[in-house]
Computed example of a mutant assay.
Amino acid sequence: MALFKKTSKSKEVAGFDALDFARAAVLADAGDPTLVGEFVSVDFDDEGRIASYLFEAFLPAYKGWRWVVTVAKTDEDSDPTICDVVVLPGPDSLLAPQWIPYVDRLQPGDVGVGDIVPSSLEDARLVPGFAALPGDEDLDATQVWELGLGRARVMSIEGRDQASKRWYEGDRGPESAIAKAAPKPCSSCGFFIPISGSLRGAFGACANAISPEDARVVSVDHGCGAHSEATL
């Protein structure tokens, strides 16, 4: 019996009937008839010489997958030949999540003791050391680079923007609950140490041992109840 399949060019391609042959092959490969379900469909190549027979697969942990038996004929008079028997995911299969590169999977707190995160030359947050922003290095950036005394790379403008946005909108910015309840901002606190460089006007470090922000970067308009000039 001849089978037909419509191709993407809307023409009909004559095929061949090897359904029983394909089922016998998949049953032999499965080794257990309960693992093979009903016939699903058949798909032919454009010349009608290679067919892929699909059967339901009832394999543990492979919900929605299908047996695929590839059968070929060299010409109309030749006997069909089994090319391979595999299991492939169907439209409702349970699949593993799409792989994501490690650099995109890392989250704050993921790096622990002994962990190494390989650097990337394509990191947009970094630029060569000689491209440091004016005022961010104690010596002339070009001279430091030529003498081999500077860092190989420093933060780019994009990297600084990302960091300042993250810090300012985080728990140590002006919108946190503790900052809104503070009597005065960090900028007027005696324990506030401004950081150097281009972010000096926006951030500093807290040096108050009894403050919950001790040893952390805070915005100048952040605050807490341990302000040096706080009064009851």
Rank of each mutant, 00 (worst) to 15 (best):
M1K: 05
K6Y: 10
T7C: 05
E12H: 00
A14G: 06
F16C: 00
F16T: 06
L19D: 07
L19E: 08
F21L: 01
A22E: 02
A24Q: 01
A24C: 05
L27D: 02
A28S: 00
A30H: 00
G31F: 01
D32T: 14
L35Y: 02
G37I: 03
V40S: 03
V40L: 02
D43V: 11
D45Y: 09
D46R: 03
I50R: 05
I50P: 06
Y53H: 10
A57Q: 10
K63C: 12
W67P: 07
V68M: 05
V69P: 02
T70M: 08
V71I: 14
V71H: 08
S78L: 03
D79C: 02
P80G: 03
C83P: 02
V85K: 04
V86Y: 06
V87L: 00
L88W: 06
L88G: 04
P89C: 04
G90V: 04
G90Q: 00
S93A: 15
L94T: 12
W99D: 12
P101W: 04
L106K: 01
L106E: 06
Q107N: 06
Q107E: 10
P108T: 14
D110N: 05
D110F: 00
V111F: 09
V111R: 07
G112E: 11
P118C: 14
P118Y: 11
P118Q: 14
S119W: 10
A124M: 01
L126W: 05
L126T: 10
L139H: 09
D140L: 08
D140P: 00
A141W: 05
T142D: 07
Q143G: 10
V144D: 13
E146R: 15
L147M: 15
L147R: 11
G148I: 15
R153P: 01
M155R: 14
M155C: 09
R160S: 03
D161V: 12
S164A: 15
S164Q: 14
Y168N: 11
Y168G: 12
E169F: 14
A177K: 06
I178T: 09
A179T: 05
A181M: 08
K184Q: 13
P185W: 12
P185R: 12
P185M: 06
C186V: 04
S187E: 02
C189W: 02
F191I: 00
P194N: 15
S196E: 13
S196K: 12
G197T: 03
G204C: 12
A207D: 13
S211M: 09
D214S: 10
D214P: 02
V220W: 03
C224P: 07
A226K: 12
A226F: 15
